[in-house]
């Protein structure tokens, strides 16, 4: 086994070069380059964490804004609803009022018209009685030749009319 046979001849050289190489790796790479690379990794991880936190914050902000917008929307809807219902109520009241007024006017006109109608009818009735009495006087005179007084004819016509 050369490792044993040569040991005394080579161990000093082996240890010298090993010490050299290990020192170079330890100080040059292990203490020099590794922390830099680790720093890059840590920086990246920190950046990722920060970006994630920022995204989370942005999302929370968006959520809040959405919530606000929804609330505002609801409030606006409620306000609009109120305005329309007030307007509707007012319109209904107005219409009612106008209707009542028109109703009153119409009924007043109707009453006047009825009154004038009944007056006219009364007048017409009186005329008809007079005409009918005259006609009855004439008819009696022509048919029987008897003379009937106007008052008698009138009362007879009145009795007939009252029976009719």
């Amino acid at each position: 086994m050369p490792q044993l046979n040569q040991l005394l001849l080579v161990y000093q050289s082996q240890w010298f070069w090993l010490a050299l190489v290990l020192a170079a790796i330890y100080f040059g790479i292990g203490k020099g380059m590794v922390p830099k690379i680790e720093g890059v990794v840590e920086g990246r991880n920190a950046k990722i964490a920060a970006d994630l936190a920022a995204a989370e914050r942005a999302r929370a902000g968006a959520d809040e804004a959405e919530e606000r917008a929804r609330a505002a929307d609801l409030a606006a809807r409620a306000a609009a609803h109120e305005v329309t219902s007030v307007a509707k109520a007012k319109a209904a009241k107005d219409a009612e009022l106008r209707l009542a007024k028109a109703d009153a006017e119409v009924s007043a006109k109707l009453a006047a018209a009825e009154a004038s109608l009944s007056a006219a009818r009364k007048g017409a009735m009186a005329n008809i009685e007079a005409v009918a009495a005259e006609a009855a006087q004439d008819i009696v005179a022509k048919v029987s030749g008897a003379k009937v007084t106007a008052a008698k004819a009138q009362s007879a016509v009145k009795a007939v009319f009252a029976n009719a």
Binding site: Q6, Q14, W17
Partner: peptide, 23 residues
Amino acid sequence: LDGTPFIFTNSALWMLIVFGAIL
């Protein structure tokens, strides 16, 4: 090979090659 520390051997060469590869 005379048992002194500074003799350059194939072992030393390959240690340096290993170091070079790591570097």
